[in-house]
Amino acid sequence: MTQGVTKINLEMLKKLLIFSVIMFGFGYALVPMYEKFCEVTGINNLLQPDVVDKNIKVDMTRTIAIELDANVRGLPWQFKPLQSNVKIHPGESLEVMYEISNVSDQEISGQAIPSYSPRFLEKYMKKFECFCFTKQVLKPGETRQMPVKFVIDPQIPVDVNTVTISYTFFALQPGK
């Protein structure tokens, strides 16, 4: 073995180490990549109001049945939609109401996370107003009715005629 071999070896060691550090970073890069992917395919939820094209056309030939759903995780709250399902024409804007009430004797804050089925509904569901855009703080015993205003983009694939919109309230740790 000559010294030359060792040098080459150290060279290669360096390269491979850098490569594994990059791959470690890649693991983290998968997080935004996944979010980006879900955004593009419309799987994930964005907690911001959508901007909607003003002259969006209402497609009266189609009707989509929307089921509304509500869940609470780890909160002494009651949460339900005031109507369990609605029908909508794509392009038409609609308002639905949800109701939460804090049945405990403490002030509590929670954050609602939306979820859709089918998952690509996110791409076509445009919300102007939603209680999920901000956290909700409820006083002891308080009940609140909250609207969701949205429109479904007429671009939605024609074979979709039943969808579900679901919200889940999670407790927010104090200080968040």
């Binding site: 509500a70 609470v72 780890g74 909160l75 009651q78 949460f79 339900k80």
Partner: peptide, 9 residues
């Protein structure tokens, strides 16, 4: 009838 979600503790 209570939505079971309300019992989520």
């Amino acid at each position: 009838v209570v939505n079971t979600a309300a019992v989520g503790n």
